[in-house]
């Protein structure tokens, strides 16, 4: 008994040490300048117009680079992120938004998964309520593994 307790302790210590080391691995908030981050945040909301399914932030294309530069200039001129996004929408249409707006058709898009989840949940709960018969199956098989 004492042996297993010691092993358990050892086990916990190993895991603890491993994770502390893992923590050491995560660089604490050593982030580059705030402007870079803001540019990236805005660029990752926009679709690169000439690429296939890449954001302006990630695309290596010329146009994406120009758009990032434009975002930077506009930020430096004091424009708000929303105004900058609106500017690109006015030039390219809502198609450029990677995050479709929650209105019109977009509303269906956002609501549909939630509806699916709720319906599935309701069905599952109804099924559980219908099929639970306490005691009946309890003695069938105690906990054990597979077949």
């Amino acid at each position: 008994m004492a042996g297993t307790a010691r092993l358990a302790g050892l086990f916990a210590v190993i895991v603890l040490v491993a994770t502390c080391a893992a923590v050491a691995a995560i660089p604490a908030f050593a982030q580059s300048s705030g402007l870079d981050e803001q540019v990236r945040a805005i660029a990752s909301r926009l679709r690169c117009p000439v690429c296939q399914n890449e954001s302006v932030a990630d695309s290596p294309s010329e146009l994406a680079a120009q758009m990032r530069a434009l975002i930077r200039t506009k930020l430096e001129q004091g424009e708000s992120p929303e105004a900058i996004v609106a500017y690109f929408v006015s030039r390219y249409g809502e198609w450029i938004l990677l995050d479709p707006p929650r209105q019109g058709l977009g509303w269906i898009l956002w609501a549909a998964p939630v509806v699916v989840l709720l319906v599935a949940l309701a069905v599952a709960v109804a099924f559980i309520r219908r099929t639970v018969r306490p005691g009946e199956a309890a003695a069938e098989r105690p906990e054990s593994g597979g077949p």
Binding site: S44, R45, R47, N53, S55, G93, E94, W95, I96, L97, L98, D99, P100, L105, G106, L109, W110
Partner: peptide, 16 residues
């Protein structure tokens, strides 16, 4: 579907 049915071009990207 949006493009085929309603003729609307939109993008559903990583944020969604």
């Amino acid at each position: 579907l949006a493009e085929a049915v309603a003729g609307v071009k939109l993008t559903v990207g990583p944020p969604f």
